[in-house]
């Protein structure tokens, strides 16, 4: 089974870039544009193997999304990768404490991300 990656970012450009890279690498990709959208999709039956989320987003940011995701029993163990900027060390640590598995610093290429994802998803 192809592993399913859930990309959450409010930038359509970023989503497109990453989605393209992941799909070429053989992953399935689902996307959401902010935390609220993402949580709705997770509650609506989407079952990704790993979630990648931006921190700065309107409506609900990445921190809120991580908190919300970890309260859903079916996602308590799902790896979550946070995308942040170099200046957001505080946010990264907060995200990690709330249940993020790892982070990548923007700008990030899908190749870098795939590498991290493969280290988190056995069999990917």
């Amino acid at each position: 089974m192809a592993k399913k990656i859930f990309l959450v970012d409010d930038s359509a450009t970023m989503l497109m870039s990453l989605q393209n890279g992941f799909e070429i690498a053989g992953f399935g990709v689902e996307t959401a544009v902010d935390g609220v959208d993402a949580l709705n999709k997770l509650k609506g039956g989407l079952k990704p193997d790993l979630m990648i989320t931006d921190i700065n987003m309107p409506n609900m940011d990445g921190i809120g999304l991580i908190q919300g995701t970890r309260t859903l029993p079916q996602f308590r163990f799902m790896p979550i990768v946070v995308l942040s900027t170099e200046s957001q060390q505080g946010k990264r640590e907060e995200a990690k404490k709330l249940g993020a598995t790892g982070w990548m610093v923007k700008p990030v290429t899908s190749a870098d991300l795939i590498k991290v994802v493969k280290q988190m998803l056995p069999g990917a």
Binding site: M1, A2, K4, E23, G26, F27, G28, V29, E30, T31
Partner: peptide
């Protein structure tokens, strides 16, 4: 090989 189908499927889903 399944993966490719899956990706297609997911794309359609999206």
């Amino acid at each position: 090989t399944l993966g490719a189908n899956e990706a297609e499927h997911n794309k359609a889903q999206v």
